[in-house]
Design a protein around this nucleic acid. Structure first.
Lengths: 176, 176
DNA sequence: TATTGTTATACTCTATAACTATA
DNA sequence: TATAGTTATAGAGTATAACAATA
């Protein structure tokens, strides 16, 4: 436990935090509905495809693909398998490193992203950008880019091989 | 006004959008780990408890409790049952409306929120506030509050026939 | 009939651990 | 030994539909 920064947040901080979380929660839900309805994709799957679509060569190793999107190896394997079943990506062994799997987006995958993107953007516009001025938007982008880079630089709490979680104070979910 | 908004987003908009989504995704993941580790709570469960803790009388009907959080009815029933099993809330029929269920946070529930809040705040501070100036924070709170209120006022987009609450300027206070 | 909430059920997704194969 | 990925498995969470009870 680091003791260098306990103490309560100012009410304004707490308000900003909860407003942020709730707004993004609402946005995520709307976006997930749009992706599911118009493209039969989850938000995670869309992120993976979008990442592949935006990369030169349009392929990444599993590890590189997982970065920032999925928090366990098996989770990515599952999602990659789903995408492969749907014909949106292929998986092949890397020629450089026989351990690695190269995930490549297919033409169908690119098409799916293209299909889904306009509606996706429209949802973001309606819910996020409409109530914002250009100045707000600029500041928001600046702030969140800094926050994101800061977070990515933090020691990942889940990627590291972690032991069991500490004993819980009281069982919240009784099994069954 | 549904035809004045097709076309692509400016790159800056897209960048702000993705930075926002990724940063919050990272933040949510960190926060969920903290809540699970220190309080055996999911983010959703924490939100429900915090909401109950911040309301006069410390009880709400299921519908009121769900409102603002994007749930199906059955999803809330499930979560309420989990919280009840853990002794953090009680469920009783409302005297005013025999159809309604009043969910009340217990002393143990309040204690759990109090237990979890300091670490929760610390995570938010480390990941979200550390890289921000006071000005950033103020602007972020202002922006996201506006965005949240805007989203809440939106009609559900091809969603199930769910009742939305009239927009009330209710801040999400998690007072311990 | 409309509304409030629960139950039954099926499904998606995630995480841990054990495993294989390569570096 | 360490790294890359898969598989087995378990369980949390969600959504839809059918249901009962009250307004």
């Amino acid at each position: 436990m680091t003791d260098d920064d306990h103490g309560a947040l100012a009410p304004e901080q707490l308000g900003a935090y909860f407003a942020l979380m709730e707004a993004v929660s609402l946005l995520q839900h709307a976006v997930e509905q749009q992706l599911r309805t118009e493209g039969d994709l989850s938000w995670v799957q869309f992120q993976l495809l979008a990442r592949l679509a935006g990369v030169p060569g349009r392929q990444l190793t599993m590890t590189a693909l997982a970065d920032g999107v999925v928090y366990s190896r098996s989770g990515l394997t599952y999602q990659a398998a789903q995408l492969e079943k749907a014909g949106l990506v292929t998986r092949d062994p890397s020629p450089d490193d026989e351990r690695a799997t190269l995930v490549t987006i297919t033409p169908a995958g690119l098409e799916r992203v293209a299909t889904v993107l306009p509606g996706h953007i429209q949802v973001a516009r309606h819910l996020l950008f409409d109530p914002l001025t250009d100045g707000d938007l600029h500041h928001l982008g600046d702030i969140m880019t800094r926050v994101r880079d800061h977070m990515r630089a933090q020691p990942p709490r889940s990627a590291a091989p972690r032991k069991r979680r500490s004993p819980s104070p009281d069982g919240c979910q009784a099994t069954g």
